[in-house]
Design a binder for these strands. Structure first.
Length: 137
DNA sequence: GCCAACGTTGGC
DNA sequence: GCCAACGTTGGC
């Protein structure tokens, strides 16, 4: 089982939208590295949702419920989407500033490779993030 | 296949 | 809104 961070602009689709919808198709990714990561996701993997506009912070946890398939918003056949469902809201959202202060998290792609919108999170760092946010899932 | 030019993203 | 960093494109 793997862990991920997926980024979104809340004006486009926020965690609150997902809470209302319960599940959604995570589409619109237009970056090859991010797409490759989407393709590596397995059913049952967990991901944290990051809001990249407004307060820049991790806000919630979701589960991958359908593995990569052709992005319905793309007609070139290049891009992929997955389906996710809402699992939990972080008890304490984790701001980018907080995350950057933690030595254990300095290698997170969220910090090192800011533009990558779908990124793998190593297990230890995943647990660290959950602890920091005081969230039980 | 390289590299310059251009476009886009994201942090501040 | 600016700018640096990164990705993508296209000419050679």
């Amino acid at each position: 089982m793997s862990f991920w961070i997926i980024k979104t602009e809340p004006s486009t689709y926020s965690l609150d939208d997902l809470i209302q919808d319960k599940t959604t198709c995570w589409d619109g990714v237009r970056n090859y590295q991010a797409r490759n990561n989407l393709s590596l996701m397995k059913k049952g993997d967990l991901a944290m949702v990051y809001h990249s506009v407004g307060p820049k912070e991790l806000v919630g946890v979701v589960e991958i419920i359908k593995e990569a398939y052709p992005d319905p918003t793309d007609h070139t056949g290049i891009w992929k989407a997955v389906d996710i469902k809402f699992i939990a809201k972080l008890k304490k959202p984790l701001t980018l500033a907080q995350i950057k202060q933690e030595k254990q998290l300095e290698n997170l792609s969220l910090v090192k490779q800011g533009r990558l919108s779908v990124a793998l999170v190593p297990n230890t760092q995943w647990r660290f993030l959950l602890n920091m946010s005081e969230t039980k899932i």
